[in-house]
Computed example of a mutant assay.
Amino acid sequence: MKMFKKVLALTLACAMLFTLGGCKKKSPEEVLKAAAAKMNKMDSADMDGTIKMKMSSASNNSSSFELQMGMKVKATGMTAKDMKMDMDITTAIAGQDVSVKAYYTDGYYYMNANGQKTKQKMDVDAMQKQLENSTGQFNTSVENYKDLKMSKKDGNYVISFKFNEKALNDYVNKMMGQLNSSGAAGSTTNYADQVKFDSMSGTMTVNKDSEIVAQKINMVVSSKQEPKLSIKMSANFKYNNPGKEVKVTLPSDLNTYKEAPAATTGTTAE
């Protein structure tokens, strides 16, 4: 079960790797360079998406299960001290639906999981770092992509790509180190030693203003440790009104949420 939780969290982290990106014009390389510049200036986001995942045992073909996740995320002030976030996540697994609503405002991270309401003190820098990771704001250097191809459809650019496995593993170690359940800073766990990324590819659909409007990702992951697991995942993301003002809606009963121990994020050294 511990191995399953690690592989599941790892795979979802990889999916979120690509949730926000941008493209522009001419060659795919030029598009990606423009994307990085625009992403660094991103202050707000409004996106929704779905993730479908099938995990099976390499030693027992009859042992498998499927997971489906839907998410909606809105955030403002991502580069400021007054950041606000509103996030809905619905997960269907093993015949059960789990609904989680999360918020961030005024230095607190609030979570409502099927009616259980808690809050944690979290400084804005830590929350911004966490949000940056979950929305894919990391080093998307052109050198990390391969087999880039670009076409145009309905006035938008459509770029297909594959991602460099080493760059992906480096990202995963950083991401999972921060999400380590112990919350210990500077975790030395090497998650690349636990899983193998057999393939990862996708497409980006981008408008004329270098703003992403849709994205698809396909990924195959297998574990290196027992029990041997294989994961096939597909993800679809949609970006609503890119470049427009985003409004975050917070519930009126945040003062009733029960306080939990302050959150610690295991950030690793840059």
Rank of each mutant, 00 (worst) to 15 (best):
L179T: 03
M87P: 14
K41A: 06
S223T: 06
A113C: 11
M53A: 06
K74P: 08
N156E: 12
G202L: 04
S223H: 05
F197N: 14
T256Q: 11
Y157F: 10
L229D: 11
E211P: 05
T256M: 09
C14A: 03
D170E: 06
K232T: 13
A269Q: 12
K74N: 07
N207R: 01
S141T: 03
T265Q: 09
P261C: 04
I159F: 03
A58R: 10
T267R: 02
T205I: 07
L8D: 15
S134T: 00
S99G: 14
K101A: 15
S59I: 03
S160H: 15
I217F: 04
I93M: 15
S187R: 04
E211K: 09
S223N: 04
M150E: 12
T91N: 11
N255M: 13
I89D: 06
M83V: 09
M53G: 06
S44N: 03
A263H: 06
D170Q: 05
M71Y: 15
M1I: 10
K72D: 11
G49M: 03
A45E: 02
S199Q: 09
A15H: 04
Y191I: 07
V158N: 07
E270V: 10
D48E: 12
L254F: 00
K25N: 13
G136T: 02
E29A: 12
I159P: 07
F65A: 07
P242K: 00
D82G: 10
N173A: 01
D48Y: 14
A260G: 11
S151Y: 06
E30R: 01
I51W: 01
C14I: 05
K238V: 08
A184I: 02
M200C: 07
E132H: 09
S134N: 02
A262R: 10
M122H: 01
S210P: 04
A269C: 10
M3G: 10
Y145R: 03
